[in-house]
Amino acid sequence: MTLNKATEASFIPYGKQSIDSADIDAVVEVLKSDFLTQGPVIPAFEKAFCDYTGAHSAIAVANATAALHIACLALEIGENDLVWTSPNSFLSSANCALFCNAKIDFVDIDPHTYNLCAKKLAEKLAFAEREGKLPKVVIPVHFAGQPCDMQEIHALSLRYNFSIIEDASHAVGASYRDKKIGACEYSDICVFSFHPVKIITTAEGGLALTNKPALAHKMRKFACHGTVREENQLSDRGQGSWYYEQQSLGYNYRMTEMQAALGLSQLAKLDHFIALRHQLFENYSRLLADLDIHLPKLKEGLHSALHLYPICLSTKLTHHRKAIFQSLRSQGIGVQIHYIPIHTQPYYQNLGFRRGDFPNAENYYECCLSLPLYSSLSFEQQESVKQTLGQTLSHFTDLD
C-alpha cells in the first residue's frame, strides 16, 4: 500500500513509542559518559524493575526473544523436552523452545480473553499424563496486556510438575490479584518486551525476572557468553580482577547503557501511560458500541496493560476482512492483525501441525483487527478511527 503525502502525514499507526525531552536527556547523558555498555545504568534499570514489580532478580537483555531463550536455558529445557504455549502470539513464544531443541505444542485460547485457556490446559494435561507426555514448561502469553488465569495455571503446575515462564511482552505494568505482573507470584520466570510499540520502550530490549537466585545466575550467564566473573563462582580462584571463566555455551544478549537509560526514564512514566490507555480503552468502548463488531472485554480481578485494542468483525463481515483492512489503511487508519496462529505458519506445518488443531485461535484470527492504541493517541484521533471504521463497515455491509 502506498499513501499519498497528505494521508501519510495524518496516518494513525496501531502503536508507537512516546518519547519526551527527559528520555532524550537520559540517553544523551549516557552518550557523554564513560560507558556505552556494561556500565552502571543497566544494574540501576534492573533494580528499578525489581522495586516496581517486587521480583527478586532482573536480567536486562537485547530483546524479549533473547529473554525467552535464556529463560528456557535456565530451566534446562533440552532435546525431547516438551514445551506448551499459546498459538495466539508472536513466533518467539514458541521458537524459544525450538532454540533449545525441545518439542513444542500449543494449548487453545479462551474465546473471550484470547489468552491461553486454563480449562483447555487442564484437559490437555490430563490426557498427556495418561500418554506419558507431560510438558516440562508451559509459557502462558498475556495477550494484549491482559493477564492469563495465572492462579489456575500455577495450581496445575503443582499437580503436573511443570515450570512456568510468563510471556508478559504485552503486559509491562499490568497487575493480577493486586500484584504486579513480573512479581513471579505464580511463575518461575517472567519476560517483558520494550519494543517501540509496547507500553514503554528501550528501542529494542527485554527483561527476565525471577525470585529464584539460581535461575537468575543461570540467565545472567547465558546472556553474556556463558561467562562468570564473581570470585565465589570461579573454578580457578585468586587469578585477579581481570579473570573470567566460560562455564557454558552462552550468547551475547546484553542490553546497552543507552537502552537502559531510556528504559529508566520511561519506567517513571509507566503507570501514567497505562492510565492514559485505560481512558482511551473506555472511550473506544463508548464510541464503537453501536458498530457491528465485538469489542474486547476485561476480566475482573486484574488490571490490564492494554497493549492492544483488538476487535472482532461480525460473522457477515469476516469474509470482507482483507478488503476492510486495506481500505482502513488506505484511509490513514493503521490497523493491524494480532496474530496469525503460530501453528499455521509453514515452518510449524512442516513439524506436523495442521489447520483445525486449535479452532478457537483460528476462529479469532479470521475475524480480528487491532485498532490504534498508544498513550499519546488523542480522543480526536479516536473519533476519526470511529468515523472511518463505521463508514467502511457500512460500505461492506451494503455489498451483501
Rank of each mutant, 00 (worst) to 15 (best):
I153V: 09
L98T: 09
V385G: 01
C72N: 14
V191G: 10
T201V: 09
H170L: 14
V137H: 08
W84S: 06
L287W: 09
L207Q: 03
S92L: 01
A6E: 13
G250D: 01
H170G: 15
S285F: 09
A97C: 00
S57M: 01
L288N: 07
D25S: 13
K32L: 12
L264P: 01
L291M: 11
G145A: 09
L234D: 03
K212M: 08
L377A: 03
K119Y: 15
Y243D: 00
M219W: 07
P43V: 06
H303P: 05
A155L: 08
S378A: 14
A275G: 04
L75M: 03
A102V: 12
A275E: 10
K5S: 12
A144Q: 11
H170P: 09
A168H: 06
N252Q: 14
A289G: 04
T2V: 15
Y52P: 01
E131V: 14
I77E: 05
F358H: 05
S394P: 11
L351C: 03
E231P: 00
A361H: 01
V41M: 09
E257G: 12
S378F: 10
H142L: 02
A260I: 04
E362L: 02
E383A: 15
F222E: 10
N4W: 13
E230R: 00
A122N: 14
A48P: 03
Y309C: 02
A97F: 02
A9S: 15
G263W: 07
D271W: 07
V138P: 04
